[in-house]
Design a protein around this nucleic acid. Structure first.
Length: 425
RNA sequence: GCCGGCGUGACGGAGCGGUUUAACGUGCUCGGCUUGAGACCGAGUGUCUCGAAAGAGACCGCAGGUUCGAAUCCUGUCGCCGGCGCCA
């Protein structure tokens, strides 16, 4: 959420950001928010004066009673006050509710470097890596090949769980684990702490992480309990320090989250219907960082590079895009998408999403830190990036490592995690 | 699911209708002592909101209620702990 002080003192900054995002409706929100805030402040002062009077009289009554004096006139005045206070309080609460509603929904202030654009077609490619080699054979659809090799079973998964689910079998299941383990080890070497988070979260912390009003429809929710299945380990990691004050020396906190992700939303069908790309459940290793505001940019580049290095070590061509103002979403101030190359379709497909959320997410979750050598407190910054979403990644891997005879080579870097296996057939 | 206990500041922990301006301790900040550190001594220090400031107000899990006045009494609710039950 936005800082009310920023909105109050520099509404022009918020307005500029909203315009870049093409959020015309929200300009009206901002206007209304400022009016309601001014009114709320006025009411607060009125109420505070009445309360001050009430507190003073109460003390006087107490003293009068102790000295056995008559307190009738004081009591008479005192009795009129609660009603007045309640009236103002009611108005004030209504305003506060609406103000909060706006603050929770207004998007983060965009970083200066975010390119202007209307949708994902305006995202800017800032980097390309790898050689797109031409194949002299027709590359098979990854799902089809996996099924043919007996490494995945879509039919039976549909029977028992419905469309969007799959069984991974044998060496391909092992490959999924190898990818996870490879990503984890890489991050651990860089000082990230491995986290296995809870897979279910209560409503309150979830509300701090995303806007449930917008996401409730695409999340799995348990029936008997107030619990949601996580859509990514980013969520339980972000919420971990909710309502806490960290010490500056603890920062940065670097996590490598490992968990399955559960999503009802599955996107459009068609080509990807029987495959690992658009599914209800997948495994993901996620990078998450809590840091001081001044370190945000540094770590943003770091987590982007971590993911790119992984692509390079597995020799899969990729591109990095700077996501434009029209496609960035409400939480991030700046965002990269990292796309892997699909030789079958000769295009890049999104594999990783790297966000600098500045203080927006942390403010929602009320995560602060105490500055060293003083009593002053600040709001931490949070950043996240995919390290690897294995199933999604398998599509690209299967395509890039497919051989003419219909087998799948195991990337060199992964072979140690596959008992030395060089080829899946 | 049933029964019992408990939710107070960064933390531990008092308070159980009106000197609560939330005791006391730990931690933290500043100063003294010290070559330095520790120990020790002294001072300061809950959070949030409004206010240019002086200051004022709110907050004791959350939401209501009783009262001139609630951390304290009442109702509801959420969470935690313990015991019993259930446990593919």
């Amino acid at each position: 959420m936005l800082d009310i002080n920023l909105v109050r003192e520099s509404p022009a900054i918020v307005e500029k950001s909203l315009k870049k995002r093409h959020e015309k409706e929200m300009l009206k929100w901002l206007d209304d928010l400022l009016k309601k805030d001014a009114k709320w402040r006025k009411l607060k002062q009125d109420a505070d004066k009445l309360r001050a009077r009430r507190n003073k009289i109460s003390k006087e009554i107490n003293q009068a009673k102790k000295q056995d004096k008559d307190a009738k006139s004081l009591l008479d005045e005192a009795k009129t006050l609660p009603k007045k206070i309640t009236e103002i309080e009611e108005q004030s609460k209504e305003l506060q509710k609406k103000i909060n509603w706006y603050l929770m929904r207004l998007p983060n202030i965009l970083d200066k470097s975010v390119p202007y654009g209307k949708d994902d077609s305006d995202n800017v490619v800032v980097k390309e890596w790898g050689k797109k080699t031409k194949r002299d054979f027709e590359i098979k659809h990854h799902g089809q090949l996996a099924a043919e090799l007996g490494l995945a079973d879509f039919e039976r998964a549909v029977k028992i769980s419905g469309t969007g689910f799959f069984y991974l079998k044998g060496d391909l299941a092992l490959l999924d684990l190898a990818l996870q383990r490879y990503a984890i080890d890489k991050l651990r070497k860089k000082g990230y702490t491995l986290i296995q988070p809870p897979h279910l979260m209560r409503r309150k912390p979830y509300e701090g992480v995303v806007s449930l009003a917008d996401f409730e429809d695409v999340m799995y929710k348990t029936e008997q309990e107030d619990l949601y299945l996580i859509a990514t380990s980013e969520h339980p990691m972000a919420a971990m320090y909710m309502d806490e004050i960290l010490e500056e020396e603890q920062l940065p906190i670097k996590f490598a989250g490992a968990s399955p992700c559960y999503r009802r939303e599955i996107g459009k069908h068609g080509l990807d219907e029987r495959g690992f790309f658009r599914v209800h459940q997948f495994n993901k290793i996620e990078q998450f960082i809590f840091c001081k505001p001044e370190d945000g940019n540094k770590y943003f580049e770091e987590i982007a590079r971590n993911a790119e290095e992984l692509m390079e070590e597995l020799a899969i061509p990729y591109q990095r895009k700077l996501v434009c103002t029209g496609d960035i979403g409400i939480i991030a101030a700046k965002k990269y998408d990292i796309d892997g190359y699909s030789p079958r379709e000769d295009k890049y497909i999104e594999l990783m999403s790297c966000s600098n959320c500045t203080d927006y997410q942390a403010r929602r979750l009320n995560i602060r830190y105490r500055k060293k050598g003083s009593m002053e407190k600040g709001v931490v910054h949070t950043l996240n990036n995919t390290m690897i979403a294995t199933t999604r990644f398998l599509r690209v891997l299967i395509e890039n490592y497919q051989t003419k005879k219909g087998t799948i080579e195991v990337p060199k870097a992964l072979q140690p995690y596959m008992d030395g296996l060089k080829e899946i057939k």
